[in-house]
């Protein structure tokens, strides 16, 4: 169980707004996070990963990750969440294979990831020589490479065509189960995750 109860002041167009979220996520569940632009979806998952610090509240996974009262705040490295960034955040200097090798030493796991991402023939390509869809798949594979117990994905399928998306989502489900990951997916497209998400968090306009 991952229990989140946090508060964060955000600078919005109309002045300071308060982002307040209280939610529990079942282990192994896939939750879709929706809401209008500017609702704080990205900020929310970055706070869970430890990349942004909430003003107050707590985040409890298997241990306390964040607690403003006890002054506990684990680093992103200690939380070890898989994170797929909206801008992919690929390393321009690394090839596809080097991205995965940077994350893990498990060669077999890397081979499997490359296979489901359909990137096996692009292992020596750097991000600059990949299409948008390939870059997005690589970002997903890199996050999965560390076998995270919590996977946070920010619009992870936006650049994929419908056919590729459907196949990848089916394949990913197998991986999620295998590594026992709890998954939070920020998505603009409500239909995109039909059938795989078991829960939903709707974030209102703040």
């Amino acid at each position: 169980m991952i229990a989140v109860d946090i508060e964060k002041k955000l600078k919005a167009y109309s002045g300071l707004q308060i982002l307040q979220i209280k939610k529990e996520f079942e282990p192994g569940s896939v939750t879709r996070i929706t809401g209008p632009s500017g609702a704080g979806k990205t900020t929310f998952i970055k706070m869970i990963a430890g990349l942004i610090t909430p003003d107050k509240g707590s985040i409890i996974a298997n241990e306390i990750w964040f607690d403003s009262r006890q002054k506990i705040n684990l680093t992103p490295q200690q939380r070890n969440t898989g994170f797929v960034f909206q801008d992919y955040a690929l390393f321009p200097n690394m090839t596809v294979k080097q991205h995965l090798e940077y994350a893990t030493n498990d060669a077999q796991w890397i081979a499997r990831l490359l296979n489901i991402g359909k990137l096996d023939t692009f292992t020596n390509h750097k991000p600059g020589h990949l299409s948008g869809g390939q870059q997005q798949r690589l970002a997903i594979l890199r996050a999965l490479a560390i076998k995270p117990k919590l996977l946070l994905m920010d619009e992870p399928f936006s650049a994929l065509d419908i056919k590729m998306k459907a196949k990848l989502i089916t394949d990913l489900q197998v991986f999620f189960k295998e590594i026992g990951a709890t998954v939070l997916i920020v998505s603009h497209n409500p239909q995109e995750l039909d059938g795989i998400s078991s829960d939903e968090l709707v974030m209102g306009e703040i």
């Binding site: 970055k46 990963a49 430890g50 990349l51 680093t75 992103p76 490295q77 070890n80 969440t81 898989g82 994170f83 960034f85 801008d87 955040a89 690929l90 390393f91 940077y102 994350a103 890199r142 996050a143 490479a145 560390i146």
Partner: peptide, 15 residues
């Protein structure tokens, strides 16, 4: 460099 590059590296457990 985009901030997300370092952030991605941190989430992979890198110092």
């Amino acid at each position: 460099l985009p901030l997300s590059l370092s952030q991605a590296s941190y989430t992979l457990g890198k110092t």
